[in-house]
Structures are given as structure tokens and as C-alpha cells.
Nucleic acid binder design. Structure first.
Lengths: 167, 167
DNA sequence: TATATATTGAGCCCCAGTATCAAATCAATC
DNA sequence: GATTGATTTGATACTGGGGCTCAATATATA
């Protein structure tokens, strides 16, 4: 029943290296995003954001947690989950449902996206909102429905996996 | 930690009432659907299918389990989960993801649907696959992606709720 | 009717996600 | 620089959906 993850006794936040140039995108974006929501740009949040941006594919919170643990054995499970939510809240990340009952996360800058998700390698391609425009308008007029927000995810094979599949 | 669900000691399957007319749609559909997959039309599967058809909305496995327990205290949790999968496999039901990490099920005849969901009254309007066709084809050609399956849900206001909103 | 195969139900585990709370840290003020 | 109040963190426990196991039992076929 007891979870693994034995570790030291670290508690609380660890400040950002204040003397650094701090001109890197992630640092600035985090500072701005957090400030906009009255929250603090902590080292943990920076680490999560950078890992998210470094990932070429969408990742789940547990995946990210395991990965981050390798370099930063002190980071907590709950912190990763909470941070991902904070990043979504700040508009720095996006959350969507992956088949099999897990949330997947991806770094993003703009508001809202939809995805092409490769079921083999999890590569994720963003589709912009505009692609949905026509479909949305047609459905609205046909069903008398007012669309506020949509989630759209296509699952299948990316170009590379499709080639390997046929090989 | 221990689950509730105390019950008797029933084991194994219970046969269908063989003497009955057995001309009701659910019985026949189940028999045919199961036969097509080399599986057996058991009483439990019939009960699940009928409950699914009787539901006016989509239901989750746990919801269905609780409901079925009222009339049939012997039915097992695992059986409900397994049966729903079997029904989906046989084309008698459809499974999709409900926000919050649960599978929802609905009896169905045709293949695959998407939804307009009213965020006020939870009314759900089905959209058929065809509406997506053009969008799918465009995305496939633009991104070299092979779409196998899509989830699409629009959230907003149905006609009635939109009127009450503006009143 | 006998026999092989499929299904069931209870109980267990797994794990994603959340709540809790004391400890640690930060920001603001003095 | 020290004090203080608000935030954040990390460990842990809990929740609940879903899946697995396996002996008991029902069904299909010979």
C-alpha cells in the first residue's frame, strides 16, 4: 500500500536563481503568466513548464512526475499535478483527455487548440480553432444550439508511424 | 478499503427463460449480436442491454451496476463492466469518454456519434459521423495523418436554455 | 446424458487524481 | 536586516473507475 518515492525531507518552495539573466522564454513566460493570476513563478513550476516544452509529445502527469524525479528527486507528486493545473489556468499549457482515462498535457501559447494524436507514438499536431469554424456554424444553425466551447481530438497514425506500419 | 456489495453466494450464469415467447427486440438483438461474435446470450447480458436501452441518457458502468443491483442483487460488478464491453464489441452499444475520466455507454445501432451537450440542462444532441467527413479529409491531406477515430463534443446552450438565458 | 467451453461473481489490486496539513519559503513591511 | 502573513510545497491518505483472478456454475455440442 505504501507508495515508493522515498526521499529526503525537503519542504516548501525553492527560489529561482535570482542572479541569473532570466531572459529565457520559459522564465519570462512563467513570470508573466503567474503574475497575471496573482501566483508565484517558483522553481518547481519552471521545471515543469520546461519539461513540458521540451516534450515533443503530450505527456501525462504521472509520466512527467517520473521524468522530473530523475533530475530532481525532491519534487512532489502533488506538486506536479497542481502545477500542471496552474499552467493550464495561466494559459501556458493545455489539457485534454487521452483514451484510457488520463489527462494529457502540452505546452501552448495561444488559447485553445484541438489535436491530431498518433496512437502509436503519441506525437501531437495542433489544429487551430479556425478549422472548426464552418462545422460549428452549420451545427448551430441546424440544431439551434449555441456553441461556447468544443473539444475535438482525432486519433490515428502520424505519417511516420503509418509508413512503419505498412513496412 | 473493503468494498460493500455484500450478497449471497450466487455463481455462474443463469439461463434465459426458455419457455418465453422471446420475440422482444432486445432478446433477438442480443442473440444475434452475441452469436456473431461466438458468444452466448446470457440473462445478465440481456438485463444490461435492456437497462441500457431503457435509459434516456448515457450511463456509466458504476451507475448501471447500482441500478441493476436494485432488481437483481446477484449481478456482479465485473460482469457489468465486462458485459458493456461485450455489447460494444457486438455493436449493440457505444462507448465514449465523459469528462472526468469515466466511460459512458449508450445503446445504439449505428456506428459512432458525437455530441452537442447543453451545459445548463445536460441535454445531449447526437451528431452523426458524416458531419465530420469533410473536416477529417482536409486534416488528413494537410498533415499527412491517418484518422482512425475522433472524439468531438460541443458544449454550449440548447435552444430552450438559450431562450431562458436571454429572458 | 456427458463433456468441453464460456461466463459469472466476489474479492483483490492498480493507479490517476484530489484533499489535507505541517513545514518551508516568499513578499511586504517595518 | 528582522518580522509577519500569505503561498507553495511534499508526504501521505483517500477515492473511485476499471481490470484481473479463479473457483463455481451455466451453456453448447457430441
Amino acid at each position: 500500500m505504501s507508495r515508493p518515492h522515498s526521499s529526503g525531507s525537503g519542504r516548501g518552495t525553492r527560489s529561482l536563481p535570482a542572479g541569473q539573466p532570466a531572459a529565457q522564454p520559459a522564465v519570462r513566460d512563467l513570470s508573466e503568466g503567474m503574475a497575471a493570476r496573482g501566483r508565484r513563478p517558483t522553481a518547481q513550476r519552471l521545471v515543469v513548464l520546461e519539461a513540458l516544452r521540451g516534450a515533443k509529445r503530450t505527456v501525462t502527469a504521472p509520466e512527467l512526475f517520473d521524468q522530473l524525479r530523475e533530475d530532481n528527486p525532491l519534487i512532489g507528486r502533488a506538486t506536479v499535478f497542481r502545477t500542471l493545473d496552474s499552467l493550464v489556468d495561466a494559459g501556458l499549457a493545455q489539457r485534454f483527455e487521452r483514451p484510457g482515462h488520463v489527462y494529457a498535457y502540452a505546452a501552448c501559447s495561444s488559447a485553445h487548440h484541438h489535436h491530431l494524436v498518433c496512437t502509436v507514438c503519441n506525437t501531437t499536431i495542433e489544429i487551430d480553432e479556425a478549422a472548426l469554424g464552418m462545422l460549428t456554424r452549420e451545427l448551430e444553425s441546424r440544431h439551434g444550439f449555441t456553441v461556447h466551447h468544443a473539444t475535438l481530438d482525432f486519433y490515428g497514425l502520424c505519417e511516420r508511424c503509418a509508413q512503419q506500419e505498412s513496412a
